[in-house]
Structures are given as C-alpha cells and as structure tokens.
Design a protein around this nucleic acid. Structure first.
Lengths: 189, 189
DNA sequence: ACCTGAACACCGTTCAAGT
DNA sequence: ACCTGAACACCGTTCAAGT
C-alpha cells in the first residue's frame, strides 16, 4: 500500500539494517535462503540497493560470522586450564546457536574480524599462563579452535550424524574431548 | 569439428564418466566452479543430459565425498592405539589431498556412504580392542572424526589461517593433538 | 549519496520432444 | 533409455540513470 519509490528516493537503509535483516533471514530460513535478493525483499528495496551499504555478499557474510563471536563470554576465574575450558565451551555454545553458519566458518577458515582477534588474544594469554611458550602456543590454540568449530559442525540438530549413533548428548561429549585436549596441552608442555 | 548431436543420439555417457569429469573439474578449478553446466561442457553434452545418470547435484557431491574416503588406508599393526593414530592420520592426509571438499564434508556432517561405513567399523573395532565399551565407543569415535575433518578444514594450503600464525607445519600439529586425544580416550576408559 | 530499472552472465532443474 | 532445445525460477553484480 505504500507509494512505490522512484530512483533517488531514500529508503532509510543503513549498513546495520542490512546486516540485521540478513541475520534475521539466516535464523529463520537458513543459509540456503540467505540471498541478496531475499534480504532486499525483506527490506522492501531493490536487490542492488544493498550494494550502497555492503561491498559484496561475501564481505557481508564475513561480518555476520565475526558478529556471532561477540557473544562468546570471556572467562572470569584464575585457573588457566579452567578458563581455557570455559572459553572454548562458550565458543561451542555460541556456534551451536548459529548452526547454519558453522560450515561457512570452516570454509573460510575462521574469522579475521575484531571478535575473532579478541578471542585469539584471550587464548594466547591463558595458554601462556598455563606455561606454554613459543610455537606451542599457536599450536595448542589451533587444536582448540579446530576442535570447537569441528565439533559444532557435527552437532547441528538438523542432520543425522553418522558419528553420533548411540552417543550421549553432544555437549557432554564435547566437554569430555575438550578435557582430554586441555590435559594434553598442559601436560605436554 | 564433431558433428553436433540431435535429440536421441547417444553421447556414450555413464554415471562413472559424469563422476570422473566432476572429480577432474573439482581438482582443477575448485568447488565454486563445480557446476552441472561446467561438467556437461567438459563432457560435450547439454547440461540436462547429466540427469540421465545422476539424480541431482547434491547426490553427486555425496558420492564424490564418499569416493574420496576409499583412499584411506586400513591400519595393519596389532596395537589399537597405534592403529587408531594411523587410520586417523591417513584420513587426514586423504582429506588434505581434497581440500576443497572438506567444508562440504562438514556441511553435510560426514558421509553415509560405503567407505564411511567401512571406516566406522574399523574405528569401532579398534576402540573396542582398546578397552572402550558402550556409549564410550561412539563418543570417542565422534571426537576423532571431528578432529580429523576439522583440522583438515583448517589446513588447506590456500587460505591464510588465523589460528596458524607462527605455527609449525599442519601435519606435525595434527599428530600432536591426535596423540593427546588418543591418550585421553584410552586413559579415560 | 542513495536508490531504481534494466540488464548481464550465470545457476539447478523440468518438460516435451526426438531417435 | 538417452539426449537435445527450450524454458522456468532463480542467483550476484554492474551500469546508467534519477533525485
């Protein structure tokens, strides 16, 4: 019922509005339905109007990925091993809450955005306080990140997981493997 | 220069020919260029001709995924822990050799094909011989599978890996984390 | 600067033919 | 049964406008 816009008439769009619509669409319809045209539709604009606010779909998805990581809680306690388990478990929970994004995350080998960097610094600090030095820090960090994202990818509720036949809930399983890794990392120093 | 075919004239296509062309295209041009139309082009047929031999692109990719796993070597020795490390390392190597497929693998939560099943049986046997029982078997299996595929996803040569800054080669890193996991799995029984 | 209309170069897939 | 031509319902993105 609204009067259609002609060329040059503002729609009140913004970068945040585009990202918000994208997040909503992703949560409701999943990754396959996340198209520039669907986002534009949800915002009531022409598809190409989005390109005034985001450089490309790929760049937009990158921002979506890093934005998710903002919800990862920084650990609070003193013990590095406990904190390490906490931050990885929080990462896992956040990823699980955005299951559709996880394969994309893997495909792009993680994020390089501000939130990913923040988590990297936190992990480096914890690993250092746990006694690791030099290349061992990056090595352990990679193992932990790989494990958290990899496990999240295999814990999405939708799919029937071949590796999960007759297995306890994924979260308990995740914690168990995480414990093995953290013990190995700290013991192996 | 070849005489163009009309409708009804055979092109000598087969299911294996289609899969072979798909594999070649994937190895040469990567996943993004793996389109039904490109495969048809490589085979010199119309795009829809492929649908006489494969049900859909998705089913074809599933077959591609499982086919890759045929190259995973079955372990030979007697010690279950060593065999476990061997079969996971072989899986990792095979996945690395097909880096483009790894994110797809994650997105589909593994394969349910014959090769994936064969590996599952091998792992169950090894874990059983290592002393695991009941739910612990599936649990440990999932952790190992997740770790191998997840690590492979983060080890593709192309991308700049944020978790890999100042880190030793991926294979040595993989072996190290794998050792922690196998030790934890067997020690935790 | 922000938006539209139209277009370009693609996709996977289906359907009605032809042999 | 196997293949083609044509078409359908999509994609992301660009370019030349208009205000």
């Amino acid at each position: 019922m609204t009067t259609p816009r002609g060329p040059g008439q503002r729609a009140g769009l913004s970068r945040d509005a585009v990202l918000g619509a994208a997040r909503l669409l992703l949560a409701e319809d999943g990754l396959e339905r996340l198209t520039m045209r669907a986002i534009a539709d949800a915002l009531g604009v022409a598809p190409n109007a989005l390109y005034s606010h985001v450089a490309s779909k790929s760049a937009m998805v990158d921002d979506l990925l890093d934005g998710v990581l903002a919800a990862v809680a920084a650990p609070s306690g003193d013990d590095p091993a406990t904190s390490l388990r906490e931050v990885m478990a929080s990462t896992y929970d956040v990823l699980i809450a955005h299951a559709d994004l996880v394969p994309v995350y893997l495909a792009r080998q993680g994020s390089r955005g501000p939130n990913a960097q923040r988590l990297g610094v936190i992990m480096n600090d914890l690993l250092g306080r746990a006694g690791l030095e030099g290349t061992a820090v990056g090595e352990a960090r990679r193992v932990l990140i790989v494990y958290a994202i990899g496990f999240a990818a295999f814990s999405t509720p939708g799919g029937t997981d071949p590796a999960a036949v007759g297995v306890e809930p994924a979260r308990a399983n995740f914690d168990r493997g995480l414990g093995w890794l953290v013990d190995g990392i700290i013991g192996a120093d």
